[in-house]
Computed example of a mutant assay.
Amino acid sequence: MARPIRIEYAGAFYHVISRGNERRAVFRGDDDYKLFLSTLEEASDRFDVLIHAYCLMPNHLHLLIQTKDSNLSEFMKRLLGVYTIRFNRRHKRHGHLFRGRYKACLIDQDSYFLELSRYIHLNPVKAKLSVSPEEYCWSSMRFFLRQDGPSYLHKKFTLDSFDSPRAYQVFVKEGMGQNGDLPKPTAGCILGSESFIKNFTKHIQKHKGKDVSGKKGLYRMPIPKLQQLTQGKERSFQMYCLWKYGRLTQRSIGEMFSRTHAAVSQNIHRFGARLAKDKILNQELKSVMSEFKD
C-alpha cells in the first residue's frame, strides 16, 4: 500500500498520530510523559507550531496542531527524534521507538476542528484509562477548564467557539454517548468539507502523488539583519535569536561563535528558561524583534 502523502503549507491544521513500534509502550511511566511534554514544548517553540490539543496514551499519541510555516515534517522529525534519543538514554535501550511514519491528516478547521478536539480528549475514556476526560493527567483537557496551563497550549482558538470553558466540557462529554468515529480521510490524508477536499485533491493530482509543500522558510529571518540587531547583546541572547528566528542549527551557531554544539545547546536552553521568568528580558527581545519588523 502506498504511503499517504504529506501536504504542508503555512497555517495548516493537522491531526497527528504516532504509534509505538510493534505496538509497544512509548511511555513507561510518569517521567516519560513529562519528558515528552518538555520535548513538545521545545519543538513547538523552535518551529512556531501551535498546539491546540494533545493526548498521550501508553503506546501512541495524538496532537491537534497548526503550523505557521510549511514545516510539519521538520517539527515532527525534531519532536519524535529528540524524544526517542532521550527515552533510549533513560531506559538504556537502542533502536526505533515509533512505528514507521507518523500519520498526519490535514483538516478543515471550519468543519472538523472541534470534532477532532473532542475525539482526542475522549481517547482515555474510550480506552478505559479514565472515567472522564478531564481526569486523565496526560491530555490537555483539564487545562481547558483552568486559568493556568502550559505556555505552548493554545486554548483560545477552541474556546472562542463556546460561551465558557464549561460549555466546551459539556460538548466533549456529549461525545461519550456517541460512536465517536471520524470519517475516513480522503486520499488517506485530508479531512474536511467537499470544497476543501476538492481543492487539495487538485494539488495531489498535480504533484502526481508526491508530497505537496508550500513556500519554505517563510518565518526565517535574514542572518545579517539578526546579527546587526543583536550586536552588543550577550552571547546567549545572540545565539537564541539565531536559533529561534534565523532557524540556524546549533552546530552552525557553534561554528560562528567557536563553541561546541553542546555549549550552544546549553546557552539556548538557559536563555529560554530565563526568558520564561524575566519580564524585562522579554521586553528587550520584543524590542529587538520590533526593529526587525520596522
Results as ranks from 00 to 15, higher is better:
166 R>C: 00
252 S>F: 02
180 G>Y: 03
267 N>P: 04
213 S>H: 10
147 Q>A: 14
275 L>A: 09
67 T>V: 08
169 Q>K: 15
174 E>R: 11
223 I>V: 14
23 R>M: 05
213 S>T: 12
22 E>N: 15
4 P>Q: 11
198 K>E: 15
288 V>T: 12
276 A>Y: 00
61 L>Y: 11
111 S>Q: 15
115 E>C: 04
117 S>G: 04
77 K>F: 07
174 E>G: 13
2 A>W: 00
216 K>R: 15
7 I>C: 02
275 L>G: 04
264 V>M: 08
285 L>G: 08
183 P>K: 07
177 G>E: 13
292 F>G: 07
99 R>M: 06
98 F>D: 06
56 L>D: 07
196 F>V: 01
110 D>A: 12
228 Q>V: 07
46 R>G: 04
285 L>D: 08
24 R>S: 08
236 S>P: 06
64 L>C: 03
4 P>C: 03
262 A>D: 10
163 D>M: 06
173 K>E: 14
65 I>G: 01
76 M>H: 10
71 N>Y: 03
14 Y>Q: 10
211 D>S: 08
85 I>D: 13
46 R>E: 10
41 E>F: 00
202 K>E: 12
128 K>Q: 14
230 T>V: 13
125 V>N: 09
248 L>I: 02
231 Q>I: 02
17 I>E: 11
213 S>C: 15
164 S>E: 05
235 R>S: 13
81 G>R: 12
228 Q>D: 13
218 L>M: 02
292 F>V: 02
218 L>S: 09
41 E>L: 04
260 T>M: 06
199 N>Y: 04
198 K>P: 00
89 R>T: 10
194 E>T: 13
99 R>K: 13
16 V>N: 10
178 Q>M: 11
216 K>V: 00
15 H>P: 07
38 S>L: 07
132 S>V: 13
148 D>F: 08
283 Q>A: 11
106 L>Y: 09
58 P>G: 02
172 V>K: 03
6 R>G: 00
40 L>P: 04
215 K>Y: 06
229 L>Q: 09
32 D>Q: 00
42 E>L: 08
45 D>S: 11
